[in-house]
Simulated assay, not measured.
Amino acid sequence: MIFFLSQPWRKINWQDKQTDLQFVKNYKPQVKGQQLRILLHGLVGAGKSSFINSVQSVLQGRIPNTFYPFVFNNIMGLGPNKGVLVDDVKLALKGHIKDGYLFNPVSQISEDHAFYKTFPELNDKVHVLVLVICADKLPLLTDKFVKELLEIRKAASDLGIPQVALLTKIDQACPEVKEDLKNVYKYEYIKKQMEKLSAEVGIPMNCIFPVKNYHEEIHVDNDTDALLLSSLRSIITLYFTMSEK
């Protein structure tokens, strides 16, 4: 049985996505020339590439000739057979792996590899780590996968890298949300999945964001945009807040 809450437990201004869009437009890094590097990781097929493409769809053409000082990196997914090695993720966090490297699921990158950067600069290092995971796959998390996530999370925490999580494919996990995306914070099922993820990997609830990526649509949608922009604004805000400390 799915329980419907009378009031949403988290507020989203569905009618005013322009505020979040303007926030993203106005964001300027504290260090001149810095790019906010956001690394996405998670299980194979979690929707990492789709999220990046969806954000691009939201921003494309809406603010002409605007340079956005953030960069998304999509790393090979973790998997039971041929997934990215945890040690390679740790090196990526430190900026040792150049853009364009094809990760080897059976062998860690060596220091003499052409795509290994011995002395990373500020823009090479990861500034925010984003875990991407499907809402309908949470009940299937294995102990091995959780252990790898915790190891990556600890490495990021030791480096002072703030972390968030995106709960994707919420429309597939909950038919009522597929029917009306504005119900996302009214259905207890979605909240329970977020609480489960928080308990498993230790990411606080206020750093977990349910989103719906574009995958079949040919036109952008206001409600989908609102969730995507809200999550992007939260990622930027989290980094800004952490860097102020």
Rank of each mutant, 00 (worst) to 15 (best):
T142P: 10
S54E: 02
A135V: 02
V55E: 06
D112N: 10
G42Q: 03
K98N: 13
Y27M: 11
K98A: 15
A46P: 01
L78F: 02
Y27A: 09
Y101E: 05
L122G: 06
R62S: 10
T118F: 07
L85F: 09
F70A: 11
L85P: 04
V58I: 11
E111V: 07
L141W: 08
G61K: 00
G42V: 04
K25M: 12
E121N: 13
F103S: 04
I75C: 09
I38H: 01
N104H: 03
L85H: 05
V128E: 05
D124G: 14
P69L: 02
F119L: 07
L93E: 11
K137R: 12
D136N: 15
L122I: 10
S49I: 06
G77N: 06
V58T: 11
I97Y: 03
I38Y: 00
V24S: 08
Q35W: 11
E121H: 13
L85R: 02
F70R: 09
G61F: 01
F23S: 01
C134S: 12
D88T: 00
K32C: 06
K94I: 03
I63H: 08
G100F: 02
K98V: 03
G42K: 07
V86D: 06
L91T: 00
I38E: 01
L39C: 07
D143L: 15
N74M: 08
L78C: 03
N81W: 06
Y116I: 08
G47D: 07
G33N: 02
D20T: 12
I75W: 14
K32I: 03
Q34P: 10
I52T: 02
A46F: 06
V106W: 15
D143Q: 15
L85G: 06
D124A: 13
N123S: 08
P69F: 07
I97F: 05
Q34C: 14
F70M: 11
I38N: 01
L93Y: 12
K98C: 09
I109R: 07
K94T: 00
G79V: 01
Q60I: 11
V89I: 15
A135N: 02
Q22D: 02
V84G: 10
L36Y: 05
V89A: 09
